[in-house]
Write a protein that binds this DNA or RNA. Structure first.
Lengths: 357, 357
DNA sequence: CTGAAAGCGCTTACAG
DNA sequence: CTGAAAGCGCTTACAG
C-alpha cells in the first residue's frame, strides 16, 4: 500500500472522501466511512506524516529535549523515562506522539533546540535541565512554539514550568535535623549552572536562619550529582574542621558513594552522621541504613507536564482550562534510619534530655 | 522568516537557486552561494523538514525505539543514553538526527513500531529489547526499512544485529569460579521472553558441561533484572538446599539488592558467596566488597550500531563498506573482591592447597 | 549558472 | 454527501 491515491482507486472513490472518512469528519456517509476504514485496515494504510504536516502546518509530534552529555549519562537515572509514561498517557488521547530529543554533548543546547524547531520536527517542546539564565526560553517564546520547562528559571518571566518543591524539601530536612539537635548541617549543590542548585541552597539558607543558625558557606559542598559526587562530598565533609553532624543531598544516588566513603573512614551514617536524600530511587532503597528521603511520582509529574503543555497549545487549550501556569511539585518525606538519632552540645544524652523536656 | 519563498524574494533570486545553494549542489555560482548562505544565517532560515521529506521521500531522522514500561523504567539505567552519544557522533557526519521513540507500556511494541514507520517519521530504526521471536524484525524487513537490532533473535535470519558477548561472559565467569573451586554456581535469568536470557543461560550450561559440572535447572533463578530482582534472587538462593557457593548476575545493578539481602542473613559476598556481575555501572562501583564484573564502552557500541545501520541504507552504503553484518560485542573482565576466595570440597584450606599444587 | 514548473501526499475550502 | 482542485514548502529534472 502506497498512498491515499491507491487507497481511493481501490475503493473507486475520491481521495478527498477517503481523507475525510479517515479523519473522522462529520460529513461522510457512514457506510462510506465504514468501507474506507475497513480497506485502510486491510491494506495497512496509514497517512504519510510529511504530507499531513506540510498541509496542516503541524506534525502531531511533541519533543522532550534531554541532555546526553557524558556527565548526564553518568548521572542518568530513570527520571525522564518515568516522566515519559505520564506524558504519553496524556498525549495518546489526542493522537500526539512523544519523541525524546537527545542533545549531543558536543552541541550547544540552544543551537540544537533551534535546529529541531526550525526543521519543524515537533509542534511543541518540553525542555529540562533548566539553567539559571536559559536562552532557550526566550527563543521558544519568540518563535511562538508552545513549551513547558521542567525547572524554573530566571528567564521564565512569562512562560510555563513545573519544578520540584526544593523549598519544601530544604525546609523539612532542616527542620527535622534541627529538631534532633543538629546545628552544623551540610548540603550538596551541583557544579553546573542548573537553576535547581541555586533554589535549593537558598531555601536551605533561609531554613537555617529561621532556626537561628548562621549560614556557613563552607558547608555547601559543590560536587557532581552522581554516586561519584557523593563519594567526593563525603571526602570533603570528613576534612571539614568542626565536622558537621548532618548532610542533605540534592540527589538521592549520591548517597551510594557517600555511604561508601563514610564507611571507609569508620563513620557510620545514621549514627555518626545524619543523611537525608532527595527523591527516593530503587537503587537507594537498598542502602543500609535505609535513607531518609523525599518521594514523588514521576508518572503524575508527566501527566501534569502534558496537561500544562496542551493547555498552552491553541488546538487543545479549551480542553484543559484548569492547567494552571506554574506548579511547585510536592514531595513526601519517607522516614529512614539514616538520620534516626539525636545529637546535643556535648553528648547524645544531653540532646535526648533537652529534647524531651 | 517563513519559508524559502521569502528568502528568495529577499535575495531577488529564484527559489530553485536558493535551494541548490543551501544544499551544496555543485552547479551554483560561488558568489551566489555565499550570499544565500549569509542571508539564511542572518534571517534564521532553516528548511521545513516536512516539505523536504515529502519531496525527497526521506526524513533524515533515525529512530531509536526503547521501552517505557513500568518495569523498564524501574530497571532503567544509562544504557540507551550511553549508546545515544555514539550513535549521534556517527549520524552527525551525515546531518541525520536521532530521536528516541519510547513505546508506551500499554501499547504493543509491534503496533507502535508499525505506526511510527507508516507515519514515516523516521527513515531507519534501531530496535532493542529483542525478543526470542520478534515480529518487528519481519515487519521491518518486508517494509524495507533499514534497521539494526540491539540483541540477536531467532527471527533475525537475514537482518543485522549487534549483541553483547553473553557466551564469553558466561564462559569466563564459570571458568573463573571453577578455578577457585566452585561447583555449585547459580545464575540469574530474566522473567521475560527477551532473547538474551536464553542465550545467557545456554552459554552458562555449556560452560558448566565443559568443566564436567552437570547443569542443575534449580540453580537458574528467574527474577526481574533490577535491584529488587537481585534482592529476590538472594532470597531464593538462601533457601536452596545445598546452597550454591557462587552466583552470576545478568544485570549489574542486581548486585545492589543481592548484597543487601545476603547481609541481612549474615552471608558476606566475597567470603561466603562469590558474586560476578555483568556490565559495570557507576552505581555498582561503590559496592563493598567491590564487584567483579564485565566492562564495555556504550559509546563505542553506539558508533558500531550507527555505522552498521548506515551500511545498510542505500544512500550511505558506499561510505561504510566494512561494517559487517552481525557483531558479538566483547566485554572485558574487571576483577573485584566479590569473588576473591576459594572453596573446596570440605573446607577452604583444601581448596587453597588443591589450587596451589 | 539560473529560472520556471512539476510534483512529493496529504487536507480542505468550494461547488454541486 | 461527494468530487475536483488548490496549495502546504520544498527539491529537481528540464530548458535555456
Amino acid at each position: 500500500m502506497k498512498g491515499i491515491r491507491q487507497l481511493a482507486e481501490h475503493l473507486a472513490i475520491s481521495i478527498g472522501t477517503v481523507s475525510r472518512a479517515l479523519n473522522g469528519k462529520p460529513d461522510v456517509n457512514e457506510e462510506t466511512r465504514r468501507r474506507v476504514l475497513a480497506a485502510a485496515e486491510a491494506l495497512g494504510y496509514v497517512a504519510n506524516q510529511s504530507g499531513r504536516s506540510l498541509r496542516q502546518g503541524e506534525t502531531r509530534v511533541i519533543g522532550l529535549m534531554i541532555e546526553s552529555s557524558a556527565e548526564a549519562v553518568e548521572n542518568a537515572d530513570n527520571f525522564f523515562l518515568g516522566v515519559t509514561s505520564g506524558l504519553q498517557s496524556v498525549f495518546a488521547r489526542h493522537k500526539l506522539d512523544l519523541v525524546m530529543l537527545p542533545c549531543p554533548s558536543d552541541e550547544d543546547p540552544h543551537e540544537y533546540l533551534k535546529r529541531m524547531v526550525a526543521r519543524r520536527i515537533v509542534d511543541a517542546m518540553i525542555i529540562s535541565n533548566t539553567q539559571r539564565i536559559d536562552r532557550r526560553i526566550g527563543f521558544l517564546s519568540r518563535a511562538e512554539i508552545p513549551f513547558v520547562a521542567v525547572g524554573r528559571s530566571l528567564s521564565a518571566s512569562n512562560s510555563r514550568w513545573i519544578d520540584l518543591d526544593f523549598e519544601g524539601v530544604a525546609d523539612r530536612a532542616v527542620e527535622r535535623l534541627v529538631a534532633r539537635g543538629h546545628r552544623r548541617i551540610a548540603i550538596t549543590a551541583p557544579l553546573s549552572e542548573v537553576n535547581l542548585g541555586y533554589v535549593f541552597v537558598e531555601s536551605y539558607r533561609r531554613a537555617l536562619e529561621r532556626h537561628g543558625i548562621r549560614f556557613d558557606p563552607s558547608l555547601v559542598i559543590r560536587v557532581k550529582s552522581s554516586e561519584q559526587g557523593g563519594y567526593q562530598a563525603a571526602h570533603e565533609l570528613l576534612l571539614l574542621p568542626d565536622r558537621p553532624t548532618a548532610i542533605i543531598l540534592i540527589y538521592e544516588l549520591m548517597a551510594i558513594g557517600l555511604y561508601r566513603r563514610l564507611m571507609e573512614s569508620g563513620v557510620m551514617p545514621g549514627r555518626d552522621l545524619a543523611v537525608i536524600g532527595f527523591r527516593d530511587a530503587p537503587r537507594a532503597r537498598f542502602l543500609q541504613p535505609s535513607l531518609s528521603c523525599f518521594r514523588m511520582s514521576l508518572y503524575d509529574l508527566g501527566i501534569a507536564l502534558g496537561q500544562m503543555l496542551l493547555a498552552h497549545m491553541p488546538a487543545y487549550r479549551v480542553l484543559y482550562p484548569n492547567a494552571g501556569r506554574n506548579i511547585i511539585w510536592p514531595l513526601e518525606l519517607v522516614s529512614g534510619e539514616s538520620d534516626a538519632f539525636e545529637v546535643g552540645r556535648g553528648d547524645k544524652e544531653f540532646a535526648s534530655e533537652h529534647w524531651s523536656k
